[in-house]
Amino acid sequence: MHLHSFVTQFWPSTVDGVTLGSIYALFALGYTLVYGVLKLINFAHSEVFMVGTMSAMWIMHFLNISAIQSGFALVGALLLAALFSMGGSAATALALERVAYRPLRRRGASRLAALISAIGASFVLQQVFEVYYSNQYSNFPRLFKHSTLFNIGSAQITTDRVLIVVAAVVMMVALERTVALTKLGRGIRAVAQDPETATLMGVNIDRTIMYTFLLGGIMAGVAAVLWNVRFEQTRFDIGFLPGIKAFTAAVLGGIGNIRGALLGGLIIGLLELYGASVFGSQWRDTTVFVVLVLVLLFRPSGLLGESLARARA
């Protein structure tokens, strides 16, 4: 126990935790949305994220963007990275739905079969990238200087952190509003709450499921490009660890619950950093999972409890 270091590192830990947590939160939305609608853990979602990081990195390498940009060039490069990341992730999510899930759903296969299918798809995607791209880390260029804007306590608030947290929050709010207010969102919620009645109301379930994967993929794509901005490297297995954390965040917040994903993501990010500063960095993951188990003992359905089925998103 190093309570002293917890105190001295409180603000840097908080800033790093919020940064990491907001990426987890975006990532977690994919798990939560798909679970909400299909009652299925999309274990290949970590690869949806991985393909996003790869796509953003690829377009930078392809266009030979490797240095600090400014002005329109910077905005353009960031948007391009984001577009490719979202496109790559969304396409992967849609492909997964079509290839790994829909055929099983059509045949009325069990959830267990879908889970195995997801794990299989996850391995296939990883190995395709390992064999045909590289088994080494590839770098994502630093597009802008990570300069300090202001300080909170001993923590420096740098431009990259601000970009990550603001972008994550904007995307989460946008998604939340989409699900709450649009016809698409009503369809998603209807299918989540009662798929058969949704059909009786004229909701096309297949299309709604597709849109759900699409939205989850887009969010994972944003998470992926922000991850690239933060850590600046990616590899075929990059999705694994953050994927587990994001899934944990979704469960902690209440799987199927959009606000739960945000809350869960931030809590996991902060817990990792606080746990590491109190117990040492080798305990950061342990801290997270101990807290998860404790929360689930007392609130089996997660902090915000309800699923998408119940939540007034």
Binding site: Q193, T197, E306
Partner: peptide, 19 residues
């Protein structure tokens, strides 16, 4: 009845006019 439990009365009615 198949009421969508998480939706309000208005939202449930809107579901009837989904398409």
């Amino acid at each position: 009845r198949g009421i969508f439990p998480g939706m309000t009365v208005v939202e449930n009615l809107e579901m009837g006019a989904f398409n």
